[in-house]
Design a protein around this nucleic acid. Structure first.
Length: 275
DNA sequence: ACGAGGTCCTGCGAGC
DNA sequence: TGCTCGCAGGACCTCG
């Protein structure tokens, strides 16, 4: 499921393949993934526009167009953004939601099996508002320890839920929240405002480290995720807790606990290592 | 402010 | 074999 490292991987794979190219035609197969834009308007704004950049904000891939519009792609759980040079096989092609044919034989494709993802088309002011509502980028300069400690202190929510709240920290989802909390030795259900200063510091460091390592490994392929060139990621090999409930903790051997009590998402942790 | 629960969507695996 | 059912989940919503 694409979180920050997976979306960053799409963006890095896509940028050299699509930037500078004009969109010759655009086809949308399902309108149910659109938010705040109609199919007709989306197709009209995409057609003829040149792609001036591809960037990332939180878990959103942002295709910047030269007509001052931005195509903002949130892959949800099963969405992927790819640059392809030849048609996908039919059993894959049926899940293409948006197909933008570019100059010189490349296509920018949004593929999504379950269509939990969202496509938006935002002009500059709308983009500014949208981005301003999202929390700081955890790999950016602006995410200081002071800032994080202030965020934690203002909330009694379980720390794991806070980490996944995009208004508080951008781009962390279920997999990396579980992993970072394990690495930092913190119980996922601990109220955010009860973390000590040293726990906050350790958690922040582990979040930054794991996100950077996952980007270096081209993301985590648990089920559906593929990179922008169709390859699986590699970070699933490094996972210490996610997907390992019932297996022994790699640090102490205790059987890892899996629960759904936090926001109905699978939470996996070691009750001995994480306090 | 916070937790609980529903909604969107489809593939997949379990159970019969 | 073929069906029904529950589950997976990121973001967003309502309710208490």
């Amino acid at each position: 499921m694409p979180e920050l490292p997976e979306v960053e991987t799409y963006v890095r794979d896509l940028r050299p393949r699509v930037v500078g190219r004009r969109i010759v035609s655009a086809t949308l197969s399902h309108s149910d993934i659109l938010s705040g834009v109609t199919k007709a308007r989306l197709v009209k704004r995409l057609t003829g526009a040149r792609i001036s950049d591809v960037t990332r904000r939180a878990k959103h891939a942002v295709v910047v167009l030269d007509n001052s519009a931005r195509l903002v792609v949130q892959p949800g759980m099963t969405g992927s953004l790819m640059a392809i040079r030849k048609p996908l096989p039919p059993d894959e092609a049926r899940y293409i939601v948006l197909h933008a044919r570019l100059e010189r034989g490349t296509a920018l494709v949004y593929h999504d099996v379950r269509r939990i993802g969202t496509l938006r088309l935002l002009d500059e002011p709308a983009w500014e508002r949208f981005s301003a509502a999202i929390g700081p980028e955890p790999l950016g300069e602006e995410w200081t320890l002071e800032q994080f400690v202030a965020t934690l202190g203002g909330s009694r929510q379980a720390i794991k839920k806070l980490l996944m709240d995009q208004r508080k920290v951008a781009g962390v989802g279920n997999i990396y929240a579980n992993e970072a909390l394990f690495l930092a030795g913190i119980d996922p259900s601990k109220p955010a405002n009860r973390l000590t200063e040293s726990q906050a510091g350790r958690l922040r460091r582990e979040i930054r480290r794991i996100l950077a390592e996952a980007i270096a490994a081209s993301g985590t392929t648990f089920r559906d995720y593929r990179t922008g060139t169709g390859e699986p990621g590699n970070f699933q090999l490094e996972l210490l807790v996610y997907g390992r409930e019932g297996d022994p903790c790699k640090a102490c051997g205790t059987t890892l606990t899996g629960t759904h009590t936090l926001d109905a998402r699978i939470t996996v942790f070691c009750h001995r290592c994480q306090r």
